[in-house]
């Protein structure tokens, strides 16, 4: 018998067994998961991975790279912008339906609470995060200049 030229090695048989077992369970649940709007669910399932890996991650990585580049020689201070920006965007990522007002009417009529507060609170939190970072930055800067020996001319 001739072996194909580019035969794929089998690899660990234990790993194959484990993964086959995992696929069988995933398929058992997956049949029910796809029982309704199978196309919509598949789009969400695969789309979530693609959207994260090919859109969200490259976007924030590029933004961070741009920030570091813009900082130039002061790159060790980028954290004072990076940290509050990351935290603020994280809050937006998690709570965007409420902050963006996507669900205002339904939310208000279901819970009896006003949905207007979320945008203003997120903006306030963002202001606090950047403001706190600025205060820390000034404090560190002052300490750094105090610790530096006076320049001799």
């Amino acid at each position: 018998m001739r072996r194909p030229r580019f035969a794929l090695p089998v690899g660990s048989p234990l790993q194959i067994l484990l993964l086959t077992c995992s696929f069988a369970l995933a398929a058992y649940a997956g049949v029910q998961l796809l029982a309704g709007d199978w196309f919509g669910v598949a789009v969400w399932f695969v789309g979530a991975a693609l959207l994260h890996d090919l859109v969200l991650l490259p976007l924030y990585a590029a933004a961070d790279r741009a920030l570091v580049k813009a900082a130039g020689p002061r790159r060790r201070w980028v954290g004072y912008v990076r940290v509050p920006a990351a935290l603020s965007l994280l809050l937006l990522l998690v709570w965007f339906p409420l902050i963006g007002g996507q669900v205002t009417a339904g939310y208000a009529s279901a819970t009896g609470l006003s949905a207007d507060r979320f945008l203003s609170r997120w903006l306030l939190l963002t202001a606090v995060l950047f403001g706190g970072s600025a205060v820390l930055f000034v404090l560190r800067l002052r300490r750094a200049t105090k610790q530096r020996p006076p320049a001799v001319h």
């Binding site: 794929l8 090695p9 089998v10 690899g11 660990s12 048989p13 790993q15 194959i16 993964l19 086959t20 995992s22 696929f23």
Partner: peptide, 10 residues
Amino acid sequence: SLAHALERIS
């Protein structure tokens, strides 16, 4: 390998 291919699908 086959095992690695399955792992990536997983």
